[in-house]
Amino acid sequence: MASSFYSNTQHIDFASVLAMNDPGMVSMFQALIASGLEGFLGCTAVVYETALVDFFENASVRDGVIISTVAAQLVEISEEWFAEMFELPVDGLADVSEIPKDKIFYARSIVSMTGEPVILSGLKSQMKIHYRLLCNIMAKSISMKAGSFNALTVEKFSLMTAVVCRVKMNWGRVLFGILKKMVTSGTKQAKGFAIQISLLLANVPNLELGESSEFPSSKILTEKTVHIAVIDKSGAQDADVAPKATKAPKKHTAAVPADVPVVKRKRTTNKKDSSSKDNLELMAVAQEAVPIQMIEALPLLLMMILLTNQQ
């Protein structure tokens, strides 16, 4: 199904996200615009599913040009047309591996949540929230690499560095190179760019595309959905939004005031009276130390009680 070509994609409604009351997020989206990726990540979100299936089933690369058959019609996509359609920059570095090492080192501190340089073999939870979202965008909408989206790889971070540090990139060549890998058999490159390919096919003269499908709104980053998108839909969640572990319920015991004495039962008998078994008395004996004077007075007190009972 064509939906597999955009199951992980995150498209951007730039007008909406730039109106957010979140300086960090807004600055990140402004950096994407400054990099020249706005036309690619924010183009009209329409999908022609039948045409997409045809395109990927029949596509191949010949002399640097992507050729396919869609609805029994030949389609050719060149790097120049691809870059022109999305207004992508064509000057600068043509490979993210060419980004200077000092830029990458500098970016590792900029994006860090703690200020310490992030570890490239670690997880994206090391980074500030808005840079985690940038990592998602680079992984899901640009590189389209399968695997864990929470892992912070060198390739993903190099793409992020290009945006964060405003490195001049030939995005036309970089993105077209990824598209060529998508249609080349034997590569591990996941298929994607569903919206962008649909737009390209829609601009092929006399090409019958069939009915268009509305792109899922849940996959479009807007002012309302941008924070939800920080959660990785691959099955894992960021550390700051992960559910907390539940603690075992505590056993509740009845509280006993400290000043309440423990009462013990003491049986007293009257040896002179045969019915003394019926004259049992309960006396409260306090746990606290009893003054000596009270101990000496106890026999007299007991005598008075016994006399009273006999009367």
Rank of each mutant, 00 (worst) to 15 (best):
F5H: 13
Y6I: 12
T9M: 06
H11N: 01
D13E: 14
A15F: 01
A15R: 05
A19L: 14
A19S: 15
N21V: 03
D22C: 05
M25C: 03
A31G: 05
A31T: 01
G36R: 07
Y48Q: 07
E49P: 13
T50L: 07
F56C: 02
E57V: 03
V61Y: 04
G64M: 11
G64D: 09
V65D: 06
I66N: 12
I66W: 11
L74C: 04
E76F: 00
E76K: 10
E79C: 11
F86N: 14
F86C: 12
L88V: 01
P89M: 06
G92R: 04
D95H: 08
V96F: 02
D102Q: 10
F105R: 13
A107H: 02
I110C: 12
I110F: 01
S112A: 15
S112D: 13
G115R: 07
V118K: 01
V118R: 05
G122Y: 00
K128E: 14
H130P: 15
N136H: 07
M144Y: 07
G147I: 09
N150M: 05
E155S: 05
F157G: 15
F157I: 12
A162D: 06
V167Q: 13
V167L: 02
M169E: 15
T184C: 06
T187Q: 08
Q189V: 08
G192P: 01
A194G: 12
A194F: 14
I197R: 03
L200D: 10
L201M: 14
G210M: 09
E211T: 04
P216T: 08
I220P: 03
T222S: 15
T225V: 06
T225A: 04
V226K: 12
H227E: 08
I228L: 07
A229R: 15
A229T: 09
G235N: 11
A236S: 12
K244D: 12
K247H: 09
A248W: 03
H252G: 00
T253Q: 14
A254G: 01
V256E: 10
V256Q: 11
V256T: 06
A258M: 08
T269R: 14
K271S: 12
K277A: 10
D278I: 00
A284I: 03
A286C: 10
A286L: 11
E288H: 03
M294I: 09
M294D: 06
P299R: 08
I305E: 05
L306Q: 10
N309Y: 02
Q310T: 11
Q311V: 04
